[in-house]
C-alpha cells in the first residue's frame, strides 16, 4: 500500500517535472533539429562551426510555397542532403557558394542573418537561443 503510493507519487512528480521542464529549457533544445554543416570539410577552421536550424527553415518554407528545392537539389536518390549544388563547386569555392546562397535567400525572405552577422550562424559553443 505505502510503497505503491510512494512509487506512484514519484512517477507523477517526475513526469510533471519532465513535461514542465519543456517550458524552462531553451525553446529549440528539444524540438528543433540542429544540423552541423559539414560540407565543405575545413581542416583548420578559423570560425566556429555553423549550427544550422533545419526545422526553422522547414517552417518558413512550409508557410510559403512548400518548395524544398529552394535548398535541396533533386538527385536521383531524392532530395540532396547538402545545400543545392555545393558539392558540384570547386573545393575552394564551396564556402563562398554557401555564403551567397544562404544570405541571398535571407535577403529575399526578409528574415535570417546577413553576411555581416557571422556569429549568428557560426555559433560559439551550444548557444541555441530562439531568434526573434
Amino acid at each position: 500500500m505505502h510503497s505503491i503510493t510512494l512509487r506512484k507519487t514519484c512517477l507523477y512528480c517526475c513526469s510533471f517535472l519532465l513535461l514542465g521542464s519543456v517550458f524552462f529549457l531553451p525553446k529549440i533544445a528539444l524540438s528543433d533539429e540542429i544540423l552541423i554543416v559539414k560540407t565543405p570539410a575545413v581542416e583548420s577552421p578559423s570560425m566556429p562551426k555553423v549550427m544550422f536550424n533545419h526545422d526553422k527553415h522547414v517552417n518558413f518554407v512550409e508557410s510559403h510555397d512548400g518548395d524544398c528545392s529552394r535548398c535541396h537539389a533533386m538527385t536521383s536518390a531524392g532530395l540532396s542532403t547538402t545545400v543545392l549544388n555545393v558539392k558540384l563547386q570547386k573545393k575552394s569555392n564551396q564556402i563562398p557558394y554557401l555564403h551567397m546562397e544562404c544570405t541571398r535567400c535571407h535577403a529575399q525572405a526578409g528574415a535570417g542573418p546577413s553576411l555581416a552577422e557571422c556569429r549568428t550562424c557560426h555559433v560559439v559553443g551550444a548557444r541555441l537561443e530562439a531568434k526573434k
Binding site: 578559423s46 564556402i95 563562398p96 555564403h99 551567397m100 544570405t103 553576411l115 555581416a116 557571422c118
Partner: peptide, 10 residues
Amino acid sequence: LLGHTVILEQ
C-alpha cells in the same frame, strides 16, 4: 579581418 574578407569576396 576574416568576415571582412568574406564580404569583400562576395
